[in-house]
Simulated assay, not measured.
Amino acid sequence: MTSSNDFLREFARHRGSNRNPHFRMIIPFDFYDGLETGVALISSGGAVRIWSLGDSRSRLFRALGLAPIGGNWLETEWISKQSDTEHGSFLEPDNSEALLKLEADVMAAQATGYFVGLGSPYLNCIEIVEVDEDELNILQQDGPCVENFRRIHSLLKQSR
């Protein structure tokens, strides 16, 4: 089974335009013109907690934080009810108790790594780079902002 950390590391290694991570499903917890916070699942059942770190000036692209979390999330109550969902779907939250529990569990889960990236608000195109916890904390100090978009863009250029 591929861990979500290995999945993101492999994805980050292969650069190119129009990079789609092909998540199995994406579940937004907060949504405003795209994902603000949520979780993305990979085919093996691993998950990636995702949150906005800011938008580009045009608001067409978003700076994102990504934290792989351990476990098999396909077995959770809310996700198992979505089993017939088409691969790559961006799911509609329903405010059910099961979804609220999923959100609490995802937010409380321990990260196994940290990545930041730039991409579309619907996550169908994204470039990422691995960072350490200190780098991530620096980016989060000012909350979501345009400056974080510029900072992450610089990190991505330096990592090439």
Score class of each variant (00 low, 15 high):
S83A: 07
K81Q: 12
E77G: 09
G88H: 11
P93G: 04
W78M: 04
I42G: 06
I79A: 08
T37V: 05
R62L: 02
L35I: 10
G45A: 13
L74M: 09
T76V: 02
S43V: 05
H87A: 08
D33I: 01
S80E: 10
E36Y: 00
I79G: 15
R57I: 15
G54E: 14
I50Y: 12
G54M: 06
A40I: 06
D84H: 02
T76L: 01
F29N: 07
P93T: 13
E77T: 04
G88A: 04
E75T: 15
S56H: 11
L74W: 12
D94V: 04
T37W: 12
G71E: 07
R59Q: 00
E86H: 03
D84N: 11
R59V: 01
Q82I: 09
G34F: 06
S52I: 13
S56G: 14
F31N: 05
W73Q: 01
P93D: 08
G38E: 07
V48C: 09
G70L: 05
D84F: 02
A40T: 13
L66G: 07
G54K: 07
G65M: 04
P28G: 15
A63P: 14
G34M: 11
W78S: 02
L41H: 14
S83V: 12
I50L: 13
K81M: 08
E86L: 11
T76D: 01
N72W: 11
A40L: 10
F90D: 11
W73G: 10
D30C: 01
S89T: 03
E36W: 00
K81D: 03
G70N: 15
W51N: 01
P93L: 10
P28I: 07
I69F: 00
F90Q: 11
L66I: 02
T37R: 08
G54W: 13
V48T: 15
R57N: 08
E77K: 15
L74F: 08
A63R: 04
K81P: 01
V39C: 11
S58V: 09
S56C: 06
G71I: 05
D84W: 01
E36L: 02
E36I: 02
T37S: 10
G38F: 15
